[in-house]
Design a protein around this nucleic acid. Structure first.
Lengths: 187, 187
DNA sequence: TAGTGGTTGGTGAGCGTTCACCAACCACTA
DNA sequence: TAGTGGTTGGTGAACGCTCACCAACCACTA
């Protein structure tokens, strides 16, 4: 493991435990086992370090799961329940860091620029799920008129929302109930 | 308008524009038209000020709208579309401040304590919507087996999610499509 | 093969600035 | 005249970042 990797791991850890506002360069360097000055041999400044953490230390579990989805293989409802489970855990883990970017608008802007340059971002998650639902619809396993993107947003939105609420109260997601409600509809 | 009110307004404004990390007591005091020390005549410390902003300057549009909902009055679907519109705007406005609390775990913990003491919190929003849906179900305007809380979470979650995504990419909510998808279901 | 010079990646010390916060003081009013 | 609510002018601590310096390693040549 390279020095840079150890620094990124340490930074991610300190950001998670102390919060972005209290994640100091001194503490990150100490956690990585190096001097503070060494940080600046590998990263231009603190913002550069944080952007690198955001880009290189984001857990990819959910994205991998979605990428491996294949239409026609397995029951759609069961698949969705699995996705709800994974997404809830994923958002619960990533929310604190993702959210704390909002405390520094400059950092948010820089992050957005970086995402644009790499043509990626959090929206690829609902896009990928929508693509899967679209494929299932094409196979006739979902109603013809269904709006795949709306369905993806409803499902992932509920997970995201639960992760958020979970930091303020003790709320639990019931993946089966969620999927059943979306499946049956209100009409 | 009292001095305290002006200070709260100024703090809310600075928090929104500069971000929590760059919202200094000096700038807030200046924006309110007072000296920095005057802040400390009205608030014990910076955390106290921020908690007061969170409690007393949260826009209440959505909560009011939901509180005024009455079952049996008007078309359910149209009502839901209106709620989606209001919720999306609401979350878009409140997200930056709500999210930036995560940069300071101590502040988050204090906020959570304050919510617990007043027996309130963000979860009252889905609770209120669920209560409305429950009432509509009791009137036979929704299917008997529908899980009101899940439906509320799906709908509000999508709004919350869109507000979040909107800060990273240019995404737009289509309230009608969202409600239609939830209404018709996937099954 | 021993000496030379350059690069890489590290260190401890500390600079300049900013921050939250406060003591002392003061003007106004009940 | 006592209390309220404001001001000026600090203070110590903490922060990001830079500085001068150096050990280890490497390529090149006398």
């Amino acid at each position: 493991m390279t020095t840079r990797d150890r620094m990124l791991d340490a930074a991610a850890h300190v950001m998670r435990t102390r919060g972005l506002a209290r994640a100091t360069t001194k503490e990150i360097a100490k956690a990585a086992g190096f001097s503070e000055a060494a940080l600046y041999k590998h990263f231009a400044d603190k913002t550069d370090l944080f952007l690198a953490v955001l880009k290189e230390r984001a857990p990819s579990d959910l994205r991998n799961l979605l990428d491996e989805l294949e239409a026609g293989r397995g029951d759609v409802r069961e698949t969705l329940v699995g996705i709800v489970r994974a997404a809830t855990a994923f958002y619960r883990e990533t929310f604190p860091i993702a959210a704390s970017i909002f405390s520094e608008p400059a950092l948010l802007a820089a992050h957005r620029e970086a995402l644009k340059a790499h043509e990626t971002g959090p929206q690829v998650v609902p896009q990928t799920l929508a693509r899967y639902l679209e494929a299932e619809r094409a196979l006739g396993r979902l109603p013809a008129g269904v709006d795949a993107r709306s369905a993806a947003d409803l499902l992932l939105g509920a997970c995201h929302y639960h992760a958020f609420l979970g930091f303020f109260t003790d709320s639990r997601t019931d993946p089966e109930a969620l999927v059943a409600t979306l499946w049956n509809g209100l009409g």
